[in-house]
């Protein structure tokens, strides 16, 4: 009975929490605008400057946090099934590192500026996306022949190789460009404008559709390749589709927000704990919402300090204690 109540509770708990945090992020997310000024601007009044800050700085940042969190959590949920490993996420698998290396290449060797408007940041975003695609292509090629621990190990090694290449590029760069790159690599939800938001939203929608259609295959992968073969499920095609979905959304998110770790690992674990289920038709939508909630909370936290902290850092600070508690209660039974 308790499990039944808990299973039903998440259906309204997650959307409500997401809506509340989104509203709080608009009203409290930053020191340039007081709560009263933000509330007035939200209800259509207030000064033009307040409206400008609310709708052109805070709202896009809030939407970016939602999209980035949702996308990375969706990727994490799929990768954990593909590799049958609770540690798998786009950050660990080298997809983010591939995007990082390409972004570094574009930023440090003559690309645009990530901190400027969308058009100026586009070359770096495209480079980061292509980097994620390249990393995923290598992993997909290996996934055709290997699975499980071997594939995960390969992904981790690939991440190290890309990180080493990024370090070499950073070492060769000028101080000005280095600062620019590091501000991207720390992770931020501030770099997305209207067109960028639309691109990430489209990538997320496509990736989510792909993941939902692949959901029953992801369930089968959890029981091993022998079981998949016995049920007639094409394990190779399921893995490839899942990796493509991850690549699409991770590439788009990392391109604009930088490599954000942790949310991809944590959100699916929180969902499994909350719902008591590992079935993907429940885990995928709930991960989407939970990832968005985590990123919104991290953004709110990062804006509480006199100087806004990198979102990647607050994500880890906020989420690791939650994850440790869940792992303790879920796996120590």
């Amino acid at each position: 009975m308790y499990a039944l109540k808990r299973e039903n509770a998440y259906r309204w708990l997650l959307p409500v929490l997401l809506a509340v945090l989104a509203l709080l992020d608009l009203l409290l997310g930053g020191r340039t605008l007081s709560f009263r000024e933000a509330l007035a601007a939200l209800s259509g009044g207030g000064s033009p400057a307040a409206g400008q800050i609310l709708w052109h700085i805070r709202a896009p940042r809030m939407l970016a946090a939602i999209l980035a969190g949702a996308g990375l959590a969706l990727s994490g949920a799929q990768l954990q099934a593909v590799f049958r490993n609770p540690l798998a996420d786009p950050h660990i698998m080298g997809v983010s590192a591939g995007a990082g290396t390409a972004a570094a290449l574009a930023t440090l060797l003559g690309g645009g500026t990530l901190l400027g408007n969308f058009a100026a940041g586009l070359p770096v975003a495209i480079a980061a996306f292509l980097g994620a695609v390249a990393a995923t292509a290598v992993i997909v090629a290996v996934a055709a022949r290997h699975s499980g621990a071997t594939l995960l190990l390969f992904g981790v090694m690939l991440g190290f190789v890309f990180s080493a290449l990024t370090s070499v590029l950073a070492y060769l760069a000028s101080e000005e460009r280095l600062k620019l790159f590091y501000s991207w690599s720390a992770g931020s939800f501030s770099g997305l404008s209207g067109s960028g938001l639309l691109l990430v939203a489209l990538a997320l929608a496509a990736a989510f559709l792909l993941a939902l259609l692949n959901g029953k295959g992801l369930d089968i992968l959890l029981f091993g390749d022998d079981y998949a073969a016995a049920t007639g499920a094409p394990a190779g095609r399921i893995r490839t589709l899942a990796l493509l979905s991850c690549c699409l959304v991770t590439g788009a998110v990392t391109a604009f927000c930088g490599p954000l770790g942790f949310v991809g690992i944590a959100a699916p674990h929180i969902v499994r704990w909350l719902t008591g289920s590992s079935v993907h038709r429940r885990v995928l939508p709930a991960s989407l919402l939970t990832g968005a909630i985590l990123c919104l909370a991290a953004d709110l936290l990062s804006q509480c300090f006199p100087v806004p902290l990198p979102a990647g850092s607050t994500l880890a600070l906020l989420g690791i204690p939650i994850l440790l508690i869940i792992l303790k209660t879920r796996y120590d039974r």
Binding site: L213, L222, G224, T231, S278, V279
Partner: peptide, 27 residues
């Protein structure tokens, strides 16, 4: 096959439903 893992978070009914890969619709 032998050694199918007992995946936490799947009820027995979920497990049986999952085995119908080709018999189930796209969702």
């Amino acid at each position: 096959p032998t050694r199918i893992p007992k995946v936490r978070g799947f009820s027995l009914e979920d497990f049986l439903r999952s085995s119908c890969f080709h018999e189930s619709g796209p969702w």
